[in-house]
Design a protein around this nucleic acid. Structure first.
Lengths: 327, 327
DNA sequence: GCACGATATGTTAACGCTCACACTGCTGTG
DNA sequence: CACAGCAGTGTGAGCGTTAACATATCGTGC
């Protein structure tokens, strides 16, 4: 910076002013400084800057299983929103999801000097850990339910499930079976709740939910079980991967989708449109989740009370795996 | 730090020594300092530390399309390796892949003060940009070919293609068709090369490669074209998503896999085992890629000449989508 | 013509840490 | 008994930036 100042014939403070867009600099001076900056290929030192301003302009994201479509998309949405706001993003991926791992990850990020963290905590264990975060740490939770003690952003899973189930009921199905995600995931619980509520509200019988673990394999297993029950005409799978496994199981048993059984998924993974048949599913707007998380975090950093908006609304994507019942 | 020093009854320098594991501190002193650290809940300031040591212990990763299985897995592998080495990871995701975006992303990361960057650059355009990186920036390329001018780490795509094609030839197929990835991806080019080479070497005829874009949709389109050609008995899809689309197209045309046509994919995405039929494919070891990238970057930071190891070997995962030809 | 605010720039002191060096006792050696 | 050597600790400077304040220059209104 001193070099730039010398070359431009000004003080280092003026250089600092130019770099920070201070309006009180003469245009000519600004020009000269900019030229010197370019000529010397000067780049401000982020650490010196952060040391005095107490802001690193980097935020941390704690996440789990970033290979899965949901978390990966959320991460991407956050990263986009952060970049738009002039922030960098540092990640910490959890190997296991328990209280300690979450706290360790948050601690690591804090040690890197992030200004705040966004925690993608769809599991109960992760959400529980949020109460123990180092105090004074600006943190926003994503998909963590209301009782995490943190400002939080999420997609309206209950509404998503309602959309899925209502769609099937509207087609004329008497009821809808459900392959649920793991019970320690909040999203799984909410989808079960939305499913059950919608059935109950319309007076439809509520079959037992079948336990899955998000994997295609578990969907397949559920499909094997369901294929043996002739009364099953419509199935709401907790995510698209399980729907995929389900489709395979039904196909193997000679059941046609949607003629014999309607199937609806959740997530709208890129492959969903190309399954056999193309999958009707529920889409979540992860970019919006990213934007809201970022906005909330920025409010936290500004010391304004974060405005808690309503959850992000999912939408129904109708393809070819659902139809009126034929049997 | 001063507070800790006061509480422990030592100088700030001794506190620093304890924190950095300097062996020349008396065990009793160390103990007292540690206790003070714990009591005050003190955490060293990363920026002050980085300012003087000129090391942030954070590295940057430039990546594209982190929703795709390959890049997401690579990112995860790098993150794991970085954590093991005590480094944090900052990400920069590209919206578009061209020279300028790559340089901008690298610049952003540099502005955040990362010690070095790992660039996942599977596309020609990205690889080309690597020559223009700010000099003095420690950088490692992943999947960028040899001529990026950077130390680089990659999976042996040619070998992977060879494994796939040889597997089909060994089953008795006269030749193997290929649905290729986009021509501006290095991985796509290498897989084409491995495919062509293997066919040529064994004297098999080399059909024209069919252009795809990694998506299930393009695999479907290719499948529609191939289903009309009775001489086609074996297809090597450039990735598993295209294989998925292909399976759907073949199924729709009444062609059975593997009885009528054998299909092999590439990547081994989590769903591959649950397609109809379970997909035989080629698996890449992304953790190993992450470890090697990290190791290379650390060597670069140490000013040792990076040891350029041989590419990571992929492996064949045999499932149910390939069989000897029947027609 | 002169005080006065506005505009533009410079000066100095932190920020919290590590590095280089100086210092203090103590032990062991000739 | 003096002195070197060493373990253990303290002192002061400086990393590159911004904040706070001080200063210089310039019109402007009376």
């Amino acid at each position: 910076m001193t070099d730039v100042a010398r070359l431009a014939g000004v003080s280092h403070q003026t250089v600092s002013r130019v770099l920070n867009g201070n309006p009180q600099v003469h245009p000519d001076t600004r020009e000269r400084v900019m030229r010197a900056v370019a000529e010397l290929n000067y780049r401000p030192n982020a650490m010196a800057r952060g040391l005095v301003s107490r802001r690193s302009r980097v935020l941390g994201v704690v996440s789990f299983d970033t290979i899965l479509f949901g978390p990966a998309s959320t991460l991407l949405g956050i990263e986009r929103a952060a970049r738009a706001a002039g922030y960098g993003v540092s990640i910490a991926t959890l190997e296991r999801v328990d209280r300690q791992s979450v706290l360790e990850a948050a601690d690591n990020l804090a040690g890197q000097g992030v200004d705040g963290v966004i925690i993608i905590a769809p599991q109960m264990a992760a959400a529980a850990a949020l109460h123990n975060l180092p105090k004074g740490m600006a943190a926003v939770a994503v998909e963590a339910g209301q009782d995490s003690g943190l400002p939080s952003v999420s997609v309206d899973q209950i509404e998503g499930a309602r959309l899925a189930v209502q769609h099937l009921l509207d087609l004329g199905h008497k009821t809808v079976w459900h392959i649920a995600g793991p019970n320690d995931w909040l999203e799984a619980r909410d989808r079960i709740e939305g499913w059950r509520e919608t059935l109950t509200k319309t007076g439809a019988p509520v079959p037992a939910a079948i336990a899955g673990d998000w994997s295609a394999q578990s969907g397949y297993a559920a499909g094997v079980a369901l294929a043996g029950q002739p009364e099953v005409t419509a199935v709401f799978a907790g995510n698209d991967q399980m729907a995929l496994g389900l489709l395979r199981a039904l196909h193997e048993r000679g059941l046609r989708v949607p003629e014999d059984i309607s199937v609806i998924g959740f997530d709208d993974i890129p492959e969903s449109g190309f399954l056999l048949p193309p999958l009707t599913t529920i889409r979540q707007d992860f970019d919006e989740v990213g934007r809201r998380s970022m906005a909330t975090l920025l409010q936290l950093l500004d010391n304004t009370t974060p405005s808690s908006a309503s959850p992000v609304a999912p939408i129904l994507v109708t393809r070819a795996s659902t139809a009126p019942p034929k049997r």
